[in-house]
Amino acid sequence: MSVQISSWRNLAVAASLAAALAAGTTFAQENTPDDPRLFTPGQLTIATSDPVFPPWMMDNDPSNGEGFESAFVYALAEKMGFAADDVVWVRETFDQAIAPGAKDYDFGIQQISVTEDRSQIATFSDVYYQPQKAVVAMPGSAVEQATSFADLREVRWGVMIGTTDLDYVEQIIGVTEPAVYNDQVGLFQALQGNQIDAVATELPTALYLTAVQVPDATIAAILPPDENDYGHGLIFEQGNDLVEWVNEAIAELKSEGVIDALVAEYLIADPELAVITE
């Protein structure tokens, strides 16, 4: 009987030792490309939209490292110890990105603004970019004469569903019934077709819109920031503690001037643009 008890004790000690060794190994691997908390250890799995648009990403290819967000991701991945070939992209809609629930990737990026409401159902990284809002209109639009929010409330607005642009037009400008579109293509077509007078969008998107997608359109004005929109953050499944590791890398990129350099390369606007305040 004593031999059997001794064997049980030995097995228990061995199991405890194995568990301790495993825990130590796991801890040692954290914040490395082999981190077991990654969706797929050995790679950084990132979600973005389909399609993607300049100046955020170029040629509808997030993997080419061109455009502000693509270049930012690869700089971030390198800072975290990943080779470029270890970055894996998946696609999802904006609505899927901001929906609660499990995510089949490590984090998402597609100009997602950090807000209090979204932070209740997802975990966000520190803000990596704070964009301004812009008013885009076709030549001759009534919005070109606007000098106040009261003037802006008199024109026909178009915005994309589920975005902080919609919140801004309704809650900050005070427009009661803006036209809402499911995607950017429909929004821009409505602008060209004179179905709406103005579009509110982030300034970098407005720059590309007026340069390439709707070259006849112009940026009529810059709008003051929304205090409820903290800027763009990477979005994680609620409670994902990879965010601490990612935030450390973001902080290093900021301190080294990498993010400022990418902003200067891809997102700078004309400093002479008019600003409309309330």
Rank of each mutant, 00 (worst) to 15 (best):
A142V: 12
P139V: 07
L44K: 00
Y181T: 09
D35Y: 04
Q238M: 14
A28M: 15
L21W: 11
F27P: 08
R156V: 07
T26F: 10
D117K: 14
T45M: 03
G24D: 04
R156M: 04
V90T: 15
M138K: 01
E265N: 06
D126L: 11
A83D: 13
M160C: 10
I112N: 07
S6A: 15
E248C: 03
V88L: 11
A200C: 15
Q192F: 11
S113D: 10
V212P: 02
G174M: 03
V246G: 08
F94K: 12
E272Q: 02
G65H: 00
V185S: 12
G42Q: 13
Y129R: 14
L21C: 12
E177T: 13
G108A: 15
P100W: 00
L234C: 09
P225F: 01
V246L: 13
E272R: 01
Q192P: 10
Q120W: 08
Y181K: 10
P131Q: 07
D59V: 06
S63K: 01
Q238P: 05
R9A: 09
S49E: 00
V155N: 06
L262P: 12
V135S: 10
A14E: 14
T163L: 03
M58K: 14
P225T: 02
D34Y: 15
A146R: 14
A84Y: 07
D229N: 11
S63Y: 00
N240E: 06
P204Q: 05
S2Q: 15
D61M: 05
L234W: 11
A190D: 06
T48D: 15
A84I: 03
L152P: 07
D229E: 10
Q43P: 03
I98E: 00
D229Q: 09
S125F: 03
R156W: 03
L17F: 09
V88R: 13
D106R: 00
N64Q: 02
L253M: 11
